[in-house]
Design a protein around this nucleic acid. Sequence first.
DNA 1: TTTTGAGTTGTTCGA
DNA 2: GTCGAACAACTCAAA
Length: 419
Amino acid sequence: MIWFRRDLRTADHPALLSAAERSSSAIGLFVLDDRLLASAGKARTDYLHRCLRRLDDELGGRLHVVRGNPVDVVPEVAAKADSVHISADYGPYGRKRDAAVEKALGDVELVRSGSPYAVAPGRVLKGDGTPFKVFTPFRRAWEGHGWRKPAETDASTVDWVAKRGGEELPDVEPVADPLPLWEKFRDERLPDYKTARDRPDLDATSRLSPYLRWGLLHPRTLLAELGDDEGDATFRSELAWREFYADVLWHRPETATQNYDAKFDRMEHDEDDGRFTAWQEGRTGFPIVDAGMRQLLAEGWMHNRVRMIVASFLVKDLHLPWWWGARHFMDHLVDGDLASNQHGWQWVAGSGTDAAPYFRVFNPITQGEKFDPSGDYVRRYVPELRDVEGKAVHQPHDPIVDHAHERQVALARYGAIKS
DNA sequence: TTTTGAGTTGTTCGA
DNA sequence: GTCGAACAACTCAAA
């Protein structure tokens, strides 16, 4: 049996290879785990269904989908299997879940092959054997470590066991083939990626993050095709961030919910008086912030530059805890990845690895004018500003706070927790 | 152990 | 409008 989790593909799939080496026939299983789906918004759930639909197609319509707790469900479905093959999960919940399932499986062996990363978390270490805490040295060591070539796997080499029972997938359109999307990005947008990727008004990013999140693509597949040009190096570095944060969370699993830097436990937060809801709904009066938050609700995705701007606003203008924002992102983002999300937030808040200097407070107006110079991004998501022309659209519009004042408050509070 | 160089993503102010 | 300096010291990585 192959138990799929965040590796919803059949190409370049080491666990499939390991299963196929043992048997010519296999059951393909996915468990709808209530623990993971409980807080997921509609966009996120729909996206998962569309990924499962694609995987089901690759398996000739024979993917078993079952709802329940994996500790009960997996041994039940695996009753007639010799072994259960998985891609290893390095997240805080996945590690515990897999250990519990392994125990519940008894004599049926749980075989871990591969991971969602080019280099498995925990593998890149400093000379003294301890983990990196700064990105750039990690990236250099990670590149030096290298990674395997893509595994050559093919769903048609396996005789997939017919479904018995389980859940019917909703009738949704499968997600697009990730490989043509990658090829188009590689050929058309990668050359300008270094600078254009910061522009939310342009279609300049890869948009591959949801595919990486659910494992329809393995990063190794992309890395194998990258060269040394500027755009290639920048994109490889972005993939390295994903691996760095997975590594950080592997070594410090508690940082999914707690400050990486403990002195931030002393940070003073404000009481919420409705401003959190205003932020969530895109009603802060700062156009670029509102555009981003509305894009998140409408599409389950937000441009990376705008994620930083809205995160900075929540933490430094509204003085609310980063984990509130992180939770909201995880509920809605179709690419929401615990390690990247929580540590991206901690980076903005200043409590994480390689944290921003405390005096670096994003100005939502300046950021808008700089990265959405035409104002097109704002007008796309904030219809009430559609008649405002050019970059004037970035001026606050009935703002819920005064940025200059809140900046001073934030600086004072950061000053107060310095060691 | 000591030293040295370096560290994703910014803003403001004054010349 | 453009540009450089100031903003602060701290931690990390490696020699």
